[in-house]
Design a protein around this nucleic acid. Sequence first.
DNA 1: AGCCAAAGCTAAGGGGCTTAGCTTTTTGGG
DNA 2: CCCAAAAAGCTAAGCCCCTTAGCTTTGGCT
Lengths: 188, 188
Amino acid sequence: MPRAGLSTRAVVSAALDLIDEGGVEGLTLAALAQKVGVAAPSLYKHVAGLGELRTLIGARVLEDMTDRFTAAVLGRSGDDAVIALMHAYRDYVLDHPRRYAVMPLDPLHEPALADAGGRLIGVVLAALRDYALTESQAVQAVRRLRVVAHGFASLEANGGFGLPEDLDETYAQLITAVLPKKAGELDV
Amino acid sequence: MPRAGLSTRAVVSAALDLIDEGGVEGLTLAALAQKVGVAAPSLYKHVAGLGELRTLIGARVLEDMTDRFTAAVLGRSGDDAVIALMHAYRDYVLDHPRRYAVMPLDPLHEPALADAGGRLIGVVLAALRDYALTESQAVQAVRRLRVVAHGFASLEANGGFGLPEDLDETYAQLITAVLPKKAGELDV
DNA sequence: AGCCAAAGCTAAGGGGCTTAGCTTTTTGGG
DNA sequence: CCCAAAAAGCTAAGCCCCTTAGCTTTGGCT
């Protein structure tokens, strides 16, 4: 029996492919083992079990999103940066709708995901730097942006909108509605 | 063997209790059978299988939400109605966080849920009547409200917000930001 | 060359869903 | 009132999944 040359990283990557193909339902250790050419119990050499695998997948999705957000925000500031960030969020979910469904919504509460989650929030805060918000204003701004990005993206990814008509317009309206105001302006 | 006197409705109710207790993970035919005092295969006399059970549960959640939204909107109009509706949405999810996680986001795409989903949308449209919106304006308005309600509620129910501090304020800001404008006013 | 840790394997147990086929209860028509 | 048929149960059994236990092989390092 020649060795398959696996690694935890490779196993997680294959698991992501499996999710892309068949959704969360499609992620089974049996299917994963077959995909990487190994018997199911052998996976335990690289991953502690289905639970840990899911956690690792969540971390990976967070990292991928952070990378894309970083690239989108780089070189921009103010409304320009925030709008780019919001579109990067939507685009990620459209590119990987099934992966997004497995992303934990409370990464900061799970020690294994707190780092990745913290880095993602860091990028969002950086995009807001130009507004010169107080800490509590920034917290509110991040929350509003997240509610809109997550709400819109999860609905779109799950076919929650009847017709795709004017969806770009809907999203644009929502972004405008929750854009923070600069220090001099009114509101928030 | 005395008869248990089950019915599809009773089975679905017990399933909802199971979800309230242990989340979607906790919903298993074995556990459900034990809860209603019957052997697992006997459940098939009332429900076609786990898949249909989930669909029935989804329909039930939609109906419950519709009832509560109807009660909340009754006797109100304009901003008052919309605000009451948005709070009823949040309150439902806070009361039954685990049920909400099993509610389908695309009810109109599943024949068995289309009716219940349509009635829910009907209530929302009724809440918007006072604004005298055109059909396309109404579609955009419903979408924006749904994005905010679903985004906020699902994040809150899953512990997505770090601290509960000022969450009421966050939600109020979001509602204000997406409230439709009456016919005479600017925007939308 | 030889040792040993890592990476595989097979076997087996436990739990879940579902089907098949049987028994008992209930119901409703004659 | 009786009895036939439908409805509601049951047990047995098959299949798939996750996981643990214990063995074998590979491959790197001395």
